[in-house]
């Protein structure tokens, strides 16, 4: 069984350096938190680089990264593990959290607010100075090795009252706030990831900046870096700039005809 687990954990190892440009001192902070064995809370708008950041940190620390995308059907068994029946034998299968604890990996719960609040309570003993994971069914308490790290992410921009983090969960973490990168930095990211030339990348970033100023005018969220990269990829495939921006950015942001028109005009003005 250990060999299976070993194989499973190896699948999560990040072998080549993910492309990441630091916005500020977040890398140092995360590494410091790792040394002090503190859990991380990443917050920021969608597509601003939270998940990429975790991959980068995992690579820097040389630890496997186990990512769990949270949803509202996620149960504690899904996180901790369960017994399965094989032949006439009951077999325990570690869940991602247990797997990470036992192998000193990084467990990253993406969009944690999507999970039900009672589910996320299981991470509490791991997220304070006890750093242990009680597994009721096995009757065991796993103490997390120093290499183990817990990280969660969420997007504070949602308007629904049902999507917020409990204070008791929130107040266990070192928080890193992510925003969209500075224009120069974001251009470099779009240029590198989308493999397009620099001036074009800068203009895409300028467009994104404009859409982000529209929050007051009814746009739920401005264009993310991820959308820009997506548009850049369409461009790379030879699409013309307006269709790429329309399909890759604008139409993904809203259905409101007036906002669509305004953004369409922005594209025409910039390019």
């Amino acid at each position: 069984m250990n060999t299976t687990n070993q194989q499973r954990i190896e699948e999560h190892r990040i072998l080549s350096e993910p492309f990441y440009l630091a916005q500020g001192n977040e890398v140092e902070l995360a590494l410091a938190a790792a040394r002090e064995q503190l859990p991380l809370l990443l917050k920021g708008p969608t597509g601003c680089g939270k998940t990429r950041f975790m991959r980068y940190i995992a690579w820097r620390l040389g630890r496997p990264l186990i990512t769990v995308s949270c949803h509202d059907d996620l149960s504690t068994s899904d996180l901790i593990g369960r017994y399965l029946v094989k032949g006439m034998e009951a077999m325990w299968l570690d869940g991602p959290l247990t797997l990470a604890v036992r192998h000193g990996a990084i467990c990253y719960l993406d969009e944690i607010v999507e999970a039900r609040k009672d589910t996320t309570v299981v991470i509490h003993p791991l997220a304070d100075d006890r750093r242990e994971l009680p597994v009721e069914k096995l009757g065991m308490i796993y103490a997390a090795p120093p290499e183990f790290m817990l990280a969660v992410s969420y997007n504070p921009g949602y308007q629904s009252v049902l999507k917020d983090l409990k204070p008791s969960t929130r107040q266990r973490f070192v928080s890193l706030s992510f925003t969209y990168p500075q224009p120069a930095l974001e251009s470099r990211i779009v240029m590198t990831e989308g493999q397009i030339e620099e001036t074009l990348a800068a203009r895409l970033v300028r467009l994104a900046g404009m859409t982000r100023s529209l929050k007051e005018s009814g746009l739920a969220e401005g264009a993310s870096t991820r959308l820009l990269i997506q548009a850049a990829q369409l461009l790379r495939q030879g699409l013309d700039i307006r269709s790429a921006c329309r399909a890759g950015i604008i139409d993904s942001l809203t259905d409101d005809p007036e906002l669509l028109e305004a953004m369409e005009e922005m594209v025409q003005s910039i390019f």
């Binding site: 404009m210 859409t211 100023s213 529209l214 005018s217 007036e258 906002l259 922005m266």
Partner: peptide, 15 residues
């Protein structure tokens, strides 16, 4: 106005 004001605000970044 409906489309122009968001355009203006987006371009300028000002209210």
């Amino acid at each position: 106005r409906g489309a122009m004001v968001p355009y203006l605000r987006g371009v300028s970044g000002l209210a």
